[in-house]
Design a protein around this nucleic acid. Structure first.
Lengths: 186, 186
DNA sequence: ATATATGGTGAAGCACCATTCACTTTATTA
DNA sequence: TAATAAAGTGAATGGTGCTTCACCATATAT
């Protein structure tokens, strides 16, 4: 039926260059960068961006989606380590720390946090992968008696979305400490 | 020396109208609202805004400063109640809850959180008032044995700046619970 | 080698916004 | 009441940024 001719070689090359430049620019300057700037970084004309992505929104979404894939991969790696015997709570805090540290100098990941539950099928699948892996980690930590029993994956997403990504590393560490041990006196 | 003639009556009236409209518009639509829109809401021409405030930045700063005054007043009221016998920790969580609830539908307060340590003398004084009152509250709660001993006013500001103000009330409540009791199993 | 559709180009259109300024209106003062 | 300086006006300016399109270049298929 839809026997679309395969894309031209230069089109494939340019698409990759555009995605790379967009990721780089959004990471550095936030989703506010102009299309002109992304085009310049990719070494193509603005018009070319529009041959590949109908709107700027679509381009940003593609970059964000790639970031989510990376996050899902990290979550699965953490679960695997926990299955091999490392402590699940440590894997959870490690995952969260890495995520927050990344977000601190990567606007793309930060944007991803706000995008939860609003994307294309492939991204939905990545979200599901992350949710599955994190859910298992949480369950393991609870079984080990290290994590409060009512903690959920949504809680974890909530905490990430509120992380102080614009603060220096020491402040981020303090934030995690307060979170882990709570405000109340022991 | 500087015997500047007192401002005209209509100028005073318009300044008030502008501040009111600006606060209202920023609360509703964020600091991104156009000067046109603020002028329309105030019932004056754009040019008039510029007779009172040299730039948009200055106008926004004035609105934010007013919000900070209100916050400082609230902090002092909470301290007063604690001095009269109510529990200090409850006053702290009450203060934080009110602040977050307000920020949830008031972009001006949210902007104020980002403005800490960067303003005119009067605002500095308001910040100092808030910090003094909250510091005393924290000390009282620690003396009562309700609050972790290493908690500081900066911690409180950190937590507020990371509050999920864009989430529904139930989520905000959950956030506060996690914060108070911590993630670790009891 | 030629044909042709796919991809690339970037100037121009369009919309939005902050800011300015020459001019008009009006509160105040004498 | 007349003079005058303060305040108000809003069209115009200039800048930025997304998006479009008529045209050019070239990779691929025959």
């Amino acid at each position: 039926m839809t026997s679309a001719r395969p894309p031209r070689a230069d089109a494939v090359r340019n698409r990759a260059k555009i995605m790379g430049a967009a990721h780089e620019q959004i990471t550095a300057h936030g989703p506010g960068v102009s299309m002109e700037q992304i085009a310049a970084a990719a070494g193509v004309a603005v018009g070319t961006l529009y041959k590949h992505f109908l709107t700027k929104t679509e381009l940003v979404a593609a970059v964000v989606a790639a970031s989510i894939t990376a996050v899902a991969d990290d979550a699965e790696a953490a679960r695997r380590r926990a299955a091999n015997g490392s402590r699940a709570l440590e894997e959870i805090t490690g995952f969260l720390t890495r995520l927050v540290d990344t977000a601190a100098h990567d606007h793309a990941v930060k944007a991803a946090a706000r995008t939860l539950n609003a994307a294309d099928p492939a991204t939905r699948e990545d979200e599901a992968r992350a949710t599955r892996a994190l859910g298992e980690l949480i369950h393991a930590a609870q079984t080990a008696g290290d994590l409060r029993a009512d903690f959920t994956v949504d809680d974890l997403y909530l905490l990430f979305s509120t992380a102080p990504t614009d603060q220096p590393s020491a402040v981020r560490a303090r934030w995690l400490t307060l979170l882990l041990t709570g405000l109340a006196a022991r």
